[in-house]
């Protein structure tokens, strides 16, 4: 029974792992932190998987739990925890290596987004993922109107940060 559940979970997670990677990309500052956060998300998802009854899509459930992990549960560590060896797998994730002009602009944007606070990053993540405002509001526990207002403020904030850097 547990083995079946495990196999089912591992299959689903393997398929939807980019959800976790994308959240890590916004919240983690380097590869080590990416590995830590990814592993913590997997653990949290696995712990609550037996109660996942399929009321929503696996992907929706997974991004909610993963965002909650990044915002509320994950503890930034000074000393690294023992993580599963992913160096070969993750070494190609680009954190700072961009080449041409547009990639340089993207580098500015990622850097700017990483300076936002945890809640603002969650709003940005859901905006980038094309979630509608009712879902964004529901996920964070705020009203739809306030989610919209806050998102507009973040856009303005990012724009001015980028203008200051002469990015875009």
């Amino acid at each position: 029974m547990i083995n079946n559940l495990e196999t089912e979970f591992v299959d689903l997670l393997e398929e939807y792992q980019n959800i976790l990677h994308k959240i890590c990309k916004l919240y983690a500052e380097d590869l080590e932190a990416h590995k830590d956060l990814f592993q913590e998300m997997v653990i949290q998802l696995w712990h609550s998987y037996p109660k996942f009854k399929g009321e929503s899509k696996f992907s929706t459930w997974a991004y909610r739990v993963s965002l909650n992990t990044a915002i509320s549960l994950y503890r930034t560590k000074k000393r690294r925890i023992a993580t599963v060896e992913l160096d070969h797998t993750l070494q190609n994730i680009r954190y700072e290596e961009y080449n041409d002009e547009q990639e340089e602009q993207l580098r500015f944007l990622y850097t700017a987004v990483r300076t936002l606070n945890d809640i603002e990053k969650a709003l940005v993540y859901m905006y980038l993922e094309d979630k509608d405002y009712s879902e964004i509001a529901e996920t964070l526990g705020i009203s739809e109107v306030n989610a919209r207002v806050k998102m507009n403020r973040i856009k303005t904030k990012l724009k001015s940060m980028l203008n200051q850097q002469g990015g875009i």
């Binding site: 990814f38 592993q39 653990i43 949290q44 060896e85 797998t89």
Partner: peptide
């Protein structure tokens, strides 16, 4: 991240 790597993560201790 392959299935084996995911599997070995499941039983790591949480640091939440």
């Amino acid at each position: 991240v392959d299935k084996e790597q995911i599997k070995s993560m499941l039983y790591k201790s949480s640091s939440s």
